[in-house]
Design a protein around this nucleic acid. Structure first.
Lengths: 144, 144
DNA sequence: TATAAATAGGATAAAATTATCCGAATTAAA
DNA sequence: TTTAATTCGGATAATTTTATCCTATTTATA
């Protein structure tokens, strides 16, 4: 569904948010360990998230990544996905046609439209706070 | 959403079905031209579909690909997708966790479950005949 | 039977994605 | 001011996906 980079990005964001609630800044190393991802690759993804202003990076000793507490609830899952995978998942044609719309639909246009709309709605109605709280409560996991 | 191979597979199946209704067998060349796909790559995909008995290949001069008329309506979109991409799209975890189920869910497990179930239902309730008829009637397109 | 039109399938190449390495720059603390 | 911890970012490598090439095999027809 999503690229691996995107999966890592979502998991990293959740972990950073979780720690930011406690006023803790987390390092790349800690993140990669916690979400079970390759360190250097994760670094690239964090840079991308930082450029999209979803997370903030602090260089130097005692540096790391954080998200301002009061912003955590404002970030939607869709923003994270968009930052890394773009929006092709809910805008692109299900069969890869260059043009695919109401006037010139591909054979699966209508059926896929429903799914994609729901996916979009879901990504837009889920925010980082909800996801982080599920980890905090122990209801969900970031690695298994 | 789906791999390019899978997109080509679906489009090829539709085009073959469409022609099979007219008793016409179609060649790799004609298929690739019609669905705007690379010929040799498409050949591999057709081989896979043939091995999964979704299409039938006929070797030699005047050979090509076809689907028995009376079988067209029995093939679900899900079978084509499965033959090429497997079932990870509706079984795999949205965040790529190795284990992700009701007891040990990832943070997006519940929200994604809905989408994936719908996707699965949609793929299973759409058959090749429906798709082919939409092309025949001119309501939909295989390339654009 | 010879020929031409096809698919089958192995080998290889190109492109995209994922992953690693390493030096430069930054920064808090000793 | 030196040191150590850390992110940044460019270069490169490995893997996967997509695409191409070529030979063998099959088969209808002349």
């Amino acid at each position: 569904m999503f690229s691996k980079a995107c999966e890592y990005g979502v998991k990293a964001s959740i972990y950073i948010a979780l720690n930011s609630y406690d006023g803790k800044r987390v390092s790349l190393k800690a993140i990669a360990k916690e979400i079970d991802s390759p360190e250097a690759f994760t670094a690239k993804i964090l840079q991308k998230l930082a450029k999209h202003q979803i997370i903030q990076s602090v260089k130097g000793a005692y540096g790391g990544f954080e998200i301002p507490k009061n912003k955590i609830a404002t970030f939607k899952l869709s923003q994270i996905v968009n930052a890394i995978d773009g929006d092709t998942i809910y805008t692109g044609c299900g069969l890869g046609l260059h043009i695919c719309d109401e006037n010139h639909p591909c054979p699966v246009h209508d059926t896929f439209k429903l799914i994609r709309t729901e996916l979009k709605d879901m990504l837009e109605s889920t925010n980082l706070e909800q996801l982080a709280l599920d980890i905090k409560s122990g209801a969900c996991f970031l690695k298994l």
